[in-house]
Nucleic acid binder design. Structure first.
Lengths: 218, 218
DNA sequence: AATATAATTTAGGTTACCCAAATTATATTA
DNA sequence: TAATATAATTTGGGTAACCTAAATTATATT
């Protein structure tokens, strides 16, 4: 069965809205994620249900079937592998990869996928620290927490960011924070929950509470 | 101005039908190349003319404008660079690359294109010996000829094949002929124009006249 | 010049997306 | 429970790409 690019994007949207909560998504959330009209969502969800890629009821919303999950994970695998390729081999910055990966993730070729993964050394994580599903859809999970929850004085390693928007990633670049960096939590301000961290080279920077919530450490 | 994937494919078709002859193509030829209905071609050529990518008259057919040529060459550049990448880095055989490159050639990202080219060392030719247009659309041209026109006894180098169909390329593989191989023309049969060539390792094989016309040597 | 053949266009239809506005179903709250 | 807010759906319509069949226009042949 053939899955169109648009359908793949809908599956991704359902996945990203449900995989954490194990729940279901309503039309509205999906419409927002994909910036399409709710009417379009109704139409498409119906089609995806006919194709047995999602289960869908008006009241409870949508969730992926086993088939749908497999398809979604494959797209995500492709997306993250391409991001990795772009950063490691083509000098892309981590804030530049998203748009291009959104296109590359829809290229259909199993050989390409396998060979690309092998070429990259079957990485487990992408340049944002997101886990890359393996061929079977299995993702490694990290025992990590948000920076805001780290103890004062603790030396931690940045392993993932929870926001891949270019603006946020550039902000981190400017602050001098990159994936895999070791940082020390010096203070957490009472009045605004902002976090003072020491970077390598003893440089200290303040991170807003919002930023600290988007930085995962271990 | 935004050029759709379909439009790009039409531009490629016009290019490949006109670039040798400097002439024009009719609807039918394009329809054949793209396996679409001639009526669809009329529609699209009209659109491309509105976009000033081709010049078109009912009687003389279509040719690319300067703009259209630039766009076509960019797509071809992408196609051939991706083919090169697939063969050199991802273990694709030269008969396996076409389908995937047909998809990859439509990815839009100037940075990706530049970086990919640089990553590959700005190659001048792809795995089939076809010249890769540079950023300005310039292609290196080889002073080569078809194998059928080589003199008997001549030692020549295979530099290009004029048919990228998987079936033909596999046939060459089976015969033991690859790009850049040096071969010696031993005989040309009078009765069917088939060519006897000596490969490296002294092995001799007969190539049909049809095959010999598709092999370019220098 | 008349006619046959080939190429192109017209006309009308399909499918896969998308939207805005109106409607209907569900959930919340007075 | 009735009134209201929210969410989902339907209706009606639009675009881009494709198709087939029939009509037209070019071109080639006699």
């Amino acid at each position: 069965m053939m899955i169109s690019i648009t359908e793949e994007n809908y599956l991704k949207a359902v996945f990203s809205a449900t995989h954490l909560s194990e729940g279901r998504v309503g039309n509205q959330i999906i419409a927002e994620k994909l910036t399409v009209n709710p009417a379009s969502v109704t139409e498409m969800l119906r089609k995806l249900q006919d194709k047995k890629l999602i289960e869908y009821t008006r009241t409870d919303g949508a969730k992926l079937t086993k088939e749908g999950l497999k398809a979604a994970l494959k797209v995500i695998r492709k997306h993250r592998l391409w991001e990795t390729f772009l950063v490691i081999h083509l000098n892309f910055k981590w804030d530049e990869v998203h748009e291009v990966a959104e296109q590359l993730e829809h290229i259909q070729s199993d050989k390409l996928l396998d060979e690309l993964a092998a070429f990259l050394g079957n990485p487990g994580f992408d340049p944002h620290g997101d886990p890359i599903p393996d061929k079977n859809g299995k993702m490694q999970n990290m025992k990590c927490k948000i920076l805001s929850d780290a103890a004062i004085g603790q030396k931690v390693k940045v392993v993932k960011v929870n926001d891949n928007a270019a603006s946020f990633l550039k902000y981190l670049d400017k602050q001098g924070i990159a994936l895999a960096d070791k940082i020390i939590v010096k203070e957490i301000q009472d009045f605004d929950q902002s976090v003072l961290v020491e970077l390598k080279g003893k440089k200290e920077v303040y991170l807003s509470a919002a930023a600290a919530k988007k930085i995962m450490v271990e």
